Amino acid sequence: MIRLSPLPGPCLLCGGGDGERKDGRWLCAICGWRYGDVPDDDLPRPRVDVVYYLRYERRVKIGTSANPRQRLARIRHDELLAFERGDRALEQQRHGEFAEWREAGEWFTFCAPLEAHTRGLRRAGAPWHQYARWVSETLQR
């Protein structure tokens, strides 16, 4: 069991407030970024493509973006169900898997198989926390 404690200050990558001590260093509990390290603002943020699942009423949009905050801000939705790390190829694969429930374009009826899929993705963590971790991992490479 990981023992979390408040970080000395917010994580500079994701803004998280809790962390764990590992080898004498603080790591953010959300994204894994080492506390005190400053992301280089002179470098572009790494590209992290995600497939997103947005629920609006009884429908779900399955789309993809390399900038999910900006993209999701432009789409009317009730709830972000999940993120999945992947690009257009994975998005097209998901469209094929749920084709039976396609309503129009990238919109699908929120059926039991789609609900089960998004619930499974959420077991790995809250969507924005997963995204922060993926960005952190990419920056650390």
Rank of each mutant, 00 (worst) to 15 (best):
residue 11 C to Q: 02
residue 13 L to N: 13
residue 13 L to P: 06
residue 14 C to D: 05
residue 15 G to N: 11
residue 15 G to S: 11
residue 15 G to W: 12
residue 16 G to T: 08
residue 16 G to N: 08
residue 17 G to W: 06
residue 22 K to R: 14
residue 24 G to V: 11
residue 26 W to Q: 05
residue 26 W to Y: 10
residue 27 L to I: 12
residue 30 I to D: 04
residue 31 C to I: 12
residue 31 C to L: 09
residue 32 G to F: 03
residue 34 R to W: 04
residue 35 Y to P: 02
residue 35 Y to L: 14
residue 35 Y to K: 02
residue 36 G to N: 10
residue 40 D to A: 14
residue 40 D to H: 04
residue 41 D to K: 11
residue 42 D to E: 13
residue 45 R to N: 10
residue 47 R to Y: 02
residue 47 R to S: 14
residue 48 V to Y: 04
residue 49 D to I: 00
residue 51 V to K: 01
residue 52 Y to K: 03
residue 52 Y to G: 02
residue 54 L to P: 00
residue 55 R to G: 04
residue 59 R to H: 01
residue 60 V to T: 03
residue 62 I to R: 08
residue 63 G to K: 06
residue 65 S to I: 12
residue 67 N to Y: 04
residue 69 R to C: 00
residue 69 R to K: 13
residue 70 Q to D: 14
residue 70 Q to H: 13
residue 72 L to D: 12
residue 72 L to Y: 06
residue 72 L to C: 01
residue 74 R to I: 03
residue 74 R to K: 14
residue 74 R to Y: 06
residue 75 I to R: 05
residue 76 R to N: 09
residue 78 D to N: 15
residue 80 L to D: 00
residue 80 L to F: 05
residue 84 E to D: 12
residue 85 R to K: 13
residue 85 R to E: 13
residue 86 G to M: 07
residue 87 D to Q: 07
residue 88 R to C: 00
residue 90 L to M: 10
residue 90 L to H: 03
residue 93 Q to R: 15
residue 93 Q to K: 14
residue 93 Q to M: 05
residue 94 R to G: 00
residue 98 F to D: 01
residue 98 F to N: 11
residue 99 A to G: 02
residue 99 A to P: 03
residue 100 E to Y: 09
residue 100 E to V: 10
residue 103 E to K: 10
residue 103 E to L: 15
residue 103 E to G: 07
residue 104 A to C: 03
residue 104 A to D: 14
residue 105 G to S: 03
residue 107 W to G: 11
residue 108 F to D: 04
residue 108 F to G: 01
residue 109 T to M: 03
residue 109 T to L: 15
residue 111 C to G: 08
residue 112 A to R: 15
residue 113 P to A: 04
residue 115 E to D: 15
residue 115 E to L: 11
residue 116 A to T: 08
residue 117 H to M: 01
residue 118 T to V: 14
residue 118 T to A: 05
residue 119 R to W: 04
residue 120 G to V: 05
residue 121 L to Y: 01
residue 122 R to P: 00
